[in-house]
Structure formats: structure tokens, C-alpha cells
Simulated scan of single mutants.
Amino acid sequence: MQLIFHGHACVSLALPDGGDTLVIDPGAYSDTATALTGAAAVLITHDHFDHMDLEAVLKHLECSTDTHVWGPASALEDLTSGGAPTERLHEVAPGDVLEIVGTQVTVGGGAHAEIHPEVPQLAMNVTYLVEVDGGRIYHPGDSYEAPATVPDGGLDVLLVPVSGPWTKLAEAMDFARSVPAGAVVPIHDALLSEIGHTLTGRWLDTARLGGKYTYSRLQVGESTAV
């Protein structure tokens, strides 16, 4: 399958042999129009606007009557309030193992990373481990929570958040080193300038960390084989 980066926290998975497309976190800082084109399944980690562009997802559900959305209750409540058909909305919780458009999706996580002790915590942030034909990618949403169980052989792609009010570069480095993966792809990066990207790449690259993965920053619209 092909993993395509659509900006900030949004990626899509184009499944093998002309299969369906699965999209994760089409938010307001992403190229949602391209990401959602042809999408049969949409996974939402939590209801922050930079992870779910409510208007864009509602429009896609209206135009594409076969598309279904999976996410925590708070995200689905926003979609329901916007008029989304409830029969195509599916609530998820940590521990769920789902079969979605030819993939196996394991839901994990539960908590959004703390922004500040005085900022109320979000109700829920889930993570997604997506597996198909031996390929495995992991999206942590707004967290550095590792998968509850890492499959034998590790992951093919670990998506690592690298900017935001809750992030810390040291925690991103620990996350990248703690989860065995062939490639680390930075996400949640809309706040970074090119200088910030360069600095982040230097710290997360294995030349400094001594890890075994390949650090692969993708431009918007670029893809990598999984």
C-alpha cells in the first residue's frame, strides 16, 4: 500500500491492487480535498479541528454515500450535530480490533497529551495501528502513547508528532526510539518553519539518536510504499 501525507496530521492509505482508500485525521491544516477524494473510510483520533475539519468531512459524507467514519464519541457527536447520517458513524474505544475496508485496525490510546495542568483534558484521543498485507503503520493522534502490542518484526511506519502546544522534542525522540519501526515519518508539523523542520530532522535522525529507523519527512502530496 501507499502512505500519502496530506499535511499536518492527515495521511491516507491507498490499499493494494486498486483497493479502497482509508484516511486518518483530515483536519483544517491539511489538504482535505485531496485526502478525502475517493475515501471509503475515515478514521478520527479526536475532535480537535486540526484533526477533523468538520465541514469537509460532512461535505464528503454527503457526496460519497458509501463512506463511513470511525472515531471516539466526541468526534461523532460533532458530526451528528452537523447532520451526518448516524448509520455511517461508528464509535471506537481503546482495545477495539476492527476490519475496515480490507485492513485490520487496532484502536489504542485513550488520553490526549497534557497541554498544561490548568487546561482541561480532552475527553478522548485514540490511536490507530493499521495492518494490511503485512504492512503496518501507527498514528498516535495527539499523544506519544506506544501501541499496546507491537507486532513481531515491528512497524513499517511510525508517525511522530513534532510540533504543537503539547509536544516536546525530547518526548518525540523517546517515542521514536521506543517503538521499533523501519521508518519514522513526522506529522503534526503545521507550526514548523523550514528552520524548525531542519532542526527537528537533525534531532530525530538516527545519526544523532543511534536508532535503526530511517527518518523520512514527506512533503504534502508525497507518498511512501509500506
Rank of each mutant, 00 (worst) to 15 (best):
G211S: 02
R202W: 09
R208S: 06
W203M: 15
A183S: 12
R217G: 13
L199F: 11
G196R: 03
H197E: 15
T214H: 03
T200D: 05
A183F: 06
L218A: 14
D189H: 03
R208C: 01
A176D: 12
K212S: 15
P186H: 11
Q219N: 13
L204K: 12
G182C: 12
A183H: 08
H197A: 13
Y213I: 07
V179E: 06
L218P: 14
L191G: 12
A190L: 08
T214F: 07
V220T: 15
H188G: 08
G201M: 10
S178L: 00
F175H: 07
T214S: 05
R208Y: 05
V184K: 11
V220W: 01
L218S: 14
V185C: 07
V185L: 15
Y215S: 08
H197V: 15
T200M: 10
G201K: 05
H197R: 07
A190C: 11
A190V: 15
H188F: 01
V184S: 09
S193I: 14
G196Y: 04
Q219E: 14
F175D: 09
S193W: 08
W203N: 14
E194Q: 11
G221Q: 05
T214D: 06
T198A: 12
R217A: 15
L204A: 03
A176S: 15
V179T: 00
Y215L: 12
Y215M: 04
G211I: 02
I187R: 00
I195N: 06
R208D: 01
S216V: 08
G221D: 09
T198I: 06
G221P: 01
G210M: 13
D189P: 10
T214K: 06
R177F: 08
S193G: 07
V179G: 04
G201E: 04
D205P: 06
W203I: 12
V185A: 09
P180K: 07
L218W: 11
T214A: 15
L209C: 08
R202S: 08
R208M: 03
Y215T: 03
G211N: 06
L191F: 12
S216T: 10
I195V: 09
F175I: 11
R202C: 03
L209Q: 14
R202A: 01
V185M: 02
D189V: 10
L199W: 08
G211F: 10
L191H: 03
Q219I: 02
I187E: 07
L199M: 11
A181N: 09
L204F: 08
R217Q: 09
E194L: 02
S216W: 00
L191I: 10
G196I: 12
E194T: 13
H197D: 13
H188T: 07
